[in-house]
Design a protein around this nucleic acid. Structure first.
Lengths: 210, 210
DNA sequence: TGGTTGCCGAGACTGCTAGTCTTGTCAAGC
DNA sequence: GCTTGACAAGACTAGCAGTCTCGGCAACCA
């Protein structure tokens, strides 16, 4: 959320620890500017239909100097990802009804829905486009998506322990089938990502592979 | 292959045929330069580990002026894709042994293998990266991949007609599961794309979804 | 209250790249 | 020999990421 916080902003006064840094003096960071930047980034990300979002535009929209952006984030991609994750609810816990197929259906349908709701879709698309050129952003995104992949894997593991999947099932492959289809269709846009597809996909993955 | 063939600029007085073009005069196009550009593009594409390939570099490597590149291709992306498809064998016919699962295994394994063999992998990765920014290239790639998607779909359709898939099976979803997993793993590189995965994937798709 | 520190907005600047334009040259035909 | 048009070389424009500089201002301290 705040990847470049080099110094503690409010160290206790009169703490001359050998390793401790000198207490902070000078003007404090402007939290309003921080939020304005995230808001501007999200707004531009949402409005851009694939068109790259520039740092200049973000700074100008936020009414902020470019240097202020780079003081808080290391790269453009970091700002964009931070803007998006700021809004995404981070509690990625899969459903757990005790029936694998139902849980899987819900998980997949929720994923499809969340990605396409509101302005998230164009923002996400732009983000991926940027990640294709920005290795740093790509790494950040991988961390971000890892939480969702893990949640899905745990959901599958619970099902396997209940005997709803064969012991030798390749859970990683199933995870990749779900997210593979998702990203493939999401980015190419040649076929829908709706409830029907989610159900069919869940069914295919639960009944197959034994 | 020759997207910019300029039209005769002036309607000559006393032209006998309205639709006929004036016979070509002047220096002829240099086929060696054409090939040198494609070779240079492929070479740089293969050597670049994700780093963008520049037009300047292509022209310099080919010993050619930049204008010559743009005379033959409309954009950088077009050159890159042309360079790649020049080598890829274009007869995308799926196997047909009469057994769906075997055909599917072969098709998937061949796809995995072809993408990773030799210098193709890095070239393909760079190409996708460029396509994320270049709408023209993205369109070209979609045409390129459509042939492979069609071949897979026909393979599945043959199997369905033989009763190896339920009549109501969603063939498009199966196709997207195959290519979704492929691109997802190919681009992220977090898991293998080998023969074992191909077999498991084929098995999952044939026995599931009924 | 005045001094020091460090964030702030503004915008100039560098470096890189796609794509265009210019120039002088050279090959093919008339 | 003249016209035509492809050619190599490279200057040029435009756009963007990221850096640097500058004057201003807020927070803290003595």
């Amino acid at each position: 959320m705040n990847p470049t916080n080099p110094q503690p902003t409010d160290p206790q006064p009169g703490a001359p620890q050998p390793g401790a840094t000198r207490p902070h003096t000078g003007r404090r960071r402007n939290e309003a500017a921080h939020q304005a930047i995230l808001d501007a980034a999200l707004q531009l990300l949402a409005a851009s239909d694939g068109t790259p979002v520039t740092i200049d535009a973000i700074a100008r929209t936020a009414g902020v100097g470019k240097q202020t952006v780079y003081r808080w984030w290391p790269s453009k991609g970091a700002v964009l990802l931070d803007a998006l994750t700021d809004r995404a609810d981070q509690d990625v816990t899969g459903p757990d009804t005790g029936i694998l197929r139902t849980d899987l259906q819900t998980f997949i349908a929720t994923t499809f829905d969340a990605a396409q709701r509101g302005t998230t879709a164009s923002a996400l698309r732009t983000l991926v486009r940027e990640a294709a050129r920005d290795p740093h952003l790509a790494e950040l995104m991988q961390t971000f998506t890892a939480a969702r992949r893990t949640a899905l894997r745990e959901l599958l593991d619970r099902g396997r322990q209940r005997g709803e999947l064969p012991v030798g099932a390749d859970l990683d492959l199933i995870v990749d089938q779900v997210y593979g289809v998702f990203w493939y269709r999401f980015l190419l846009g040649h076929a829908p990502l709706d409830r029907t597809v989610a159900d069919r996909l869940a069914q295919s993955l639960v009944t197959g592979g034994e």
